[in-house]
Simulated scan of single mutants.
Amino acid sequence: MPREAELSNIERTFILEALAQNIRLDGRARDDFRNLDVSFGDDYGACAVQLGKTKVNTRISAEVTKPFEERKFDGIFTITTELSPLASPAFETGRQTEQEVIVSRILEKAIRRSNAIDTESLCIIAGAKCWSIRADVHVLDYDGGLVDASCISIIAALQHFRRPDVSIDGENVTIYSLAEREPVPLSLMHHPICITFSFYHGGETVLLDATLHEEQARDGEMIVTMNRHGELCQIAKLGGVSVDALILLGCMNMTVTKVKDITELISTKLREDATQRDVGGLIAELSAQNDR
């Protein structure tokens, strides 16, 4: 089975000694994110996120299907992740690695189980027809921060997505194309964002947004999911070194700030995309001044 090239003892020692002197290899402070870029494609629901050298593409799709028997009044929302050898030699096509399973579960808890999307709004005819929303996450390049980049990509894509409008006449459902009716945005309850912390030197040193080499040298990690209102959605600490409670509280405070910054960045990018799509349209009409 292919594996990611491991750090040599010299590289590991160099990284740890540099961190002990409050120095990171890329010159960032301990609580700094790498450059984050969010962009949208021509189709609704296509989002690309680049966090440093890590690149993630997410595409949202929708189809009409039958709801689950035990949830007749709810639609369906699923998340699928694909970690291909294109991103890293540690990933294999058609075979889930342990990391891919962990990433999928964390994203499920962070977004789907936190009820980020209002599944009741996806119901068309109770027990008969509903919308099935699917988020396909493709990792194109991997250099650490995979959960954070994937979560940001999914949340941005969900906000950007528009499903076709429908009309109901008895049991007959008519789906309108984008040319016939304005598409409908998804109903989102909140916007959870994942922030990953890495621990070193027995939990005394904390890094935000570690690169791949920094991840390979860490003693433990913790993933915090929170929305911009400061509501905690989940904490995932998958083993590793124990961490003092005061350090954890500091991580929570840092998460609040970073989540607000990321949420604002996504909102800004969405407004820019909406403006580009509406050149000469409704926005221009509403902002036009009357000639007097």
Rank of each mutant, 00 (worst) to 15 (best):
V166W: 13
T255D: 10
G75F: 09
R292N: 14
I266W: 06
L188T: 02
E70C: 04
A179W: 05
C47I: 08
E182I: 08
D219M: 07
T205Y: 08
T93W: 00
C123A: 13
L282P: 00
I152F: 07
T13Q: 15
T211L: 04
G239M: 01
S61D: 15
F40P: 08
E215P: 04
H229Y: 11
K53N: 14
M252N: 10
A128I: 01
V139G: 02
T268S: 14
F77H: 05
S267F: 04
E272R: 00
Q96D: 05
E215Y: 00
I154V: 07
T97N: 00
G145M: 07
M1R: 14
R271V: 00
L140N: 09
V224S: 13
I283W: 00
H160D: 13
D291Y: 15
V38E: 05
E215T: 00
G230M: 09
V147H: 13
A62V: 12
V137C: 03
D26Q: 02
A157N: 01
M222A: 09
D118I: 07
A18T: 09
E11M: 15
R30W: 07
N253G: 07
D278N: 12
G281P: 06
R292C: 14
I117R: 05
A126Y: 15
V243T: 00
L158C: 08
A274Q: 04
T255C: 09
M254L: 15
D141G: 03
L51H: 02
I223F: 11
A29K: 02
K66D: 09
L282T: 02
V137S: 06
N227M: 13
L265C: 02
I195R: 04
F14Q: 14
P85N: 01
V279H: 01
R134D: 14
A135R: 04
N9I: 15
L186P: 03
S132A: 15
A135G: 09
H201V: 03
K237C: 14
L122Q: 03
S153V: 03
P185F: 04
C233V: 06
A274P: 03
S198I: 01
P183Q: 02
E82Q: 10
D74I: 09
S39Q: 12
L270A: 06
E11I: 12
L186Y: 01
T54F: 07
A29Q: 01
I117E: 00
I117Y: 03
G45M: 13
L270Y: 03
E63W: 13
L248Y: 13
S242R: 11
T54D: 11
E108V: 04
D165H: 08
I111D: 02
A245Y: 07
A46H: 08
F40G: 13
N57K: 12
R105I: 01
P185K: 06
I247R: 04
F68P: 13
T58L: 12
C130I: 01
S84L: 08
S167E: 15
V64E: 10
I223E: 05
F68M: 15
D37C: 09
Q21V: 06
E264N: 00
G27K: 00
